[in-house]
Design a binder for these strands. Structure first.
Lengths: 136, 136
DNA sequence: TTAATACTTAGAGTTAACTCGAGGTCAATG
DNA sequence: CATTGACCTCGAGTTAACTCTAAGTATTAA
C-alpha cells in the first residue's frame, strides 16, 4: 500500500508541512503511522480524513471541536449518535452561512452598480440627495 | 437629525462597544462626529457605513484593507475606479466562497447519510470493505 | 564518507481581531 | 452636591491558528 510523506500530503492538500504538524500536535491525526525512525507515513485513508478535517474547518469549526470529532471516531460505534448530530448541526450552520453570503453578494452587486454609474457620470454626486454627505 | 450612542449602535449591529471603538481606533470610522465633550454621535448614514464594513468583513476582507476603502471614500471621486475594482473583486471572491461552501455542504450531507445508515445498523462497519480500518 | 536533503521535536514568535481593565470625564438625579 | 451610569482613552491581555527556528536524525547520491 502506497504511503505519502508529509511534504507530499502538504502539496496534495495545499497546506504547509507546518500546518500538518500543528494539526498532529493538536491531536487531529492520531491515526498517522510512523516509520521505525519516527517519520510520518500518510495512507490514502489518512488523506481522506484530512479532507474531512479541511471540510469541517471550512465551515468555521474550531480545531478543538474537530478534535472532539476525531476522538469520537477513535471511540467507535458508541459515539455514532454524537457524530451524526454534529454533522446535522454543521449542515445547518453551512446553510446559514450560504444565506448570509447571498445577502452579502446582493449588497456587493448593488455597490458594483453604484460605482459603475458613478464612474460613467464621473462623480459620486449623482447618488446623493444632499451633495454635502459622503456615502461610504 | 437623530443620533445614536455607541451602545445603541452596538445593539443595532449586534457588535460590542469594544469592537466599535476598535474599528474607530483602526481608522474605519473617520466620519463619526463627537459632542463637545468627545462622545461619539452616530448618524443613520454612519450606521449604513458600518453595515458596509460588516459586509466587507463577512467576505473575509481584513480590516486594513477595509481601511483603504474608507480612505478612498474620503478622498472623493478620484478613487471611484479603485472602489469599483474592489467591489468587482469582492464579488468574485464571494462567488468563489459560495462554490466552496456548496462543495462543503455536499460532503457534509454525504456524512449525514453515512451516519444515518450507520445508526440504523448500529455500527459503522457496514460502510467498510475492510472492517479493520477506521473511517473518519 | 561526506554532503545534501528531508524528515523530526520543542518551543518561541507572529498576526488578526478582538477584549478588557484602570483611571478619568460628564450629565442627570435624589 | 454627591452618586450613578454611560461615556472616554490608553495600553495591556487574550485567543486561535498558524509559522518558524534551532538543534538533531535519517536516507540517499556522488
Amino acid at each position: 500500500m502506497k504511503t505519502y510523506s508529509i511534504s507530499e500530503v502538504a502539496k496534495i492538500l495545499n497546506l504547509t508541512v507546518y500546518t500538518l504538524r500543528y494539526y498532529d500536535k493538536e491531536g487531529l491525526m492520531p491515526f498517522i503511522e510512523r516509520t521505525s525512525s519516527g517519520i510520518r507515513m500518510f495512507k490514502e485513508t489518512d488523506i481522506d480524513a484530512l479532507r474531512i478535517i479541511e471540510c469541517l474547518k471550512s465551515t468555521g469549526m474550531p480545531i478543538k471541536e474537530i478534535k472532539n470529532f476525531i476522538d469520537w471516531c477513535s471511540d467507535g460505534d458508541s459515539t455514532l449518535q454524537q457524530r451524526y448530530n454534529m454533522f446535522i448541526e454543521r449542515k445547518a450552520t453551512v446553510e446559514a452561512q450560504m444565506e448570509e453570503l447571498k445577502k452579502t453578494l446582493e449588497l456587493i452587486e448593488h455597490k458594483c452598480f453604484y460605482y459603475e454609474t458613478a464612474l460613467e457620470a464621473g462623480t459620486e454626486d449623482i447618488h446623493k440627495k444632499n451633495k454635502i454627505e459622503i456615502t461610504y
